[in-house]
Amino acid sequence: MNPYRPNKILGFLLLTLLFFSCSSDLDFNQANDFKLEPIFIANLASFEIPANQFIEKGMEQNIAMEAQEFDVFRDSFFRENLRRADFFFEINNTINRSYTIDIILLDVNDQPLFNIPFDVPAYTGTKNQVTRKVIFEDVNLELLKSTRRMDFVLTMKAGPALNASSPGSLKLRSSATAYLLVE
């Protein structure tokens, strides 16, 4: 008996089995139904302003601050696929004065697009935290996509006078949750 004959028979059997193996039609159109819905969470801005920074040359002053630019909306992929954005703000006041805080979203020409106002009560010895969630969808989302900068304007309301040794601070923390749809 030839020693190569069993190998030939085994090879022929394997080849025959391959012709009878199961297969299914591939549906490449499934790639057209591909959809991703990623969610991104990022910090927006934060600050802490001690009470004595509201005093300049012995006089009480309001404060206006410019935050960093919004570079994320310059990216066409992000701008085209953004479906919703939630901004979350948390303000903690430990100063015995009440404030109005305006968060102003500005376009590339420094024109206001959207204003987010906050009334922050004066500190009275207990936790004094104001939180707010702003949802950007539809028309407001289009305004958000045009935003290039965010400014903060802190205005003191009437109350006890502040001086260079006044205790407390005004703290802000904020974050954004972006919902994308990639098809």
Rank of each mutant, 00 (worst) to 15 (best):
N7E: 13
N7S: 13
L10C: 00
F12G: 09
L13H: 05
L14W: 02
L14K: 00
L15Y: 00
L15D: 04
L15V: 07
L18C: 07
L18E: 05
S21Q: 05
S21D: 04
S21T: 06
D25W: 01
D27N: 15
N29P: 02
A31S: 13
N32L: 15
F34K: 12
K35Q: 12
I39H: 01
I39M: 09
A42I: 12
A42M: 10
A42W: 06
A42C: 11
N43H: 00
N43L: 04
L44F: 02
L44W: 04
F47R: 05
Q53N: 13
I55C: 08
I55A: 06
N62R: 03
N62V: 03
I63C: 01
M65W: 03
Q68E: 10
F70E: 05
F70Y: 12
R74N: 11
R83E: 15
F88G: 13
F88H: 13
F89R: 09
E90R: 08
N93V: 08
T94C: 11
R97D: 01
Y99H: 14
I101H: 00
L106A: 07
L106F: 12
D107A: 05
N109H: 02
D110K: 14
P112L: 09
L113H: 10
F114M: 14
N115W: 01
F118A: 00
F118E: 11
F118W: 11
V120S: 02
P121A: 08
P121R: 10
A122N: 10
A122H: 05
T124R: 06
T124W: 00
G125K: 08
V130H: 11
V130Y: 10
R132F: 10
K133L: 01
I135M: 14
I135T: 15
V139C: 04
K145Y: 02
S146I: 03
T147D: 12
T147V: 12
R149T: 03
R149S: 10
R149Y: 00
M150Q: 15
D151I: 03
F152E: 08
L154G: 02
M156K: 04
A158K: 15
L162P: 10
P167N: 00
P167I: 00
S169E: 01
L170E: 06
K171V: 10
S174Y: 06
Y179A: 05
L181K: 11
L181E: 15
